[in-house]
Amino acid sequence: MTDLPHSPEQPVPARTSRLATFWRSDLVWSYRHSPVTIVASIVALALILMAVLAPWIAPYNPFNPATLNLMDGMTPPNSASYSDRYFLLGTDNQGRDVLSTIMYGSRVSLFVGIMATLFAMVMGVGLGLVAGYAGGLADAVIMRVADVQLSFPAILIALLIFGVARGIIPPNHQEGAAVWVLILAIGLANWAQFARTVRGATMVERQKDYVAAARILGVNPILILLRHVLPNVLGPVLVIGTIGLALAIIEEATLSYLGVGVPPTQPSLGTLIRIGQQFLFSGEWWILLFPAVTLVLLALSVNLLGDWLRDALNPKLR
């Protein structure tokens, strides 16, 4: 990628012609002409890299309690700690390095957010396609279930699912399963948005001549759905997906505020904010500020990418 020919003077080898086409495509064009999007994608990429590479680049491993010294707690940024270690962004109330906890915490948050959104997306798109295409009883059942689901704020649903999971999983295995329970809870709380959108779009597509033609020709409905309907609803799905990702990360934080979520020894960004929130009045601003800024940057950049994607994928708006 790095030695990609940029200048038109150079002869373009046949092998890269596809890349060149891509480079000149509308999507890329709109990307290159949106400085906000470029910044957002750089920020998002940096944060994701930071999270993925945390075990290798973080100065400390805050998830290993044996390495912590409680007396290092509350060290302000860029100053010497009790045990004479250096913490660029200071430490929290357990003596954990804030920078490292943010890196590891972003990892947890992103993992939960991405998995939950994927889960919601697959479930919502699948059910939405079926409901929109099949109609009738299937439609009624699916959409009524979606109604039930939308009858409650996502947080409430997640809270309830979390509660059920806690009841089903024996107490001693709950903490190991906590992350998966969160993913399930947040995912189940958000599928209905996808389902509604996809169903609406599917119903519109279904009316169109080409689908009718395909149906008359006896094409397998699943094939119709996948080949013709799905590509047409993918745009809105991607848009909801990116915004849903941001939402899932925030929801995880809120669940943590309500006292359920990942174990406090392996904090996510949300847990860090919940902990830091206690120090709002006491002067240890760094415990709250840095995780909060990270969360905002993450959610914001993902949201902005979602925005750009929506505009770019919608040919009518170009």
Partner: peptide, 15 residues
């Protein structure tokens, strides 16, 4: 405006 509006939803309500 579009960017600022997103900041509002990028923070948890309690914060």
């Amino acid at each position: 405006i579009m960017t600022i509006s997103l900041v509002g939803v990028s923070l948890p309500t309690f914060l």
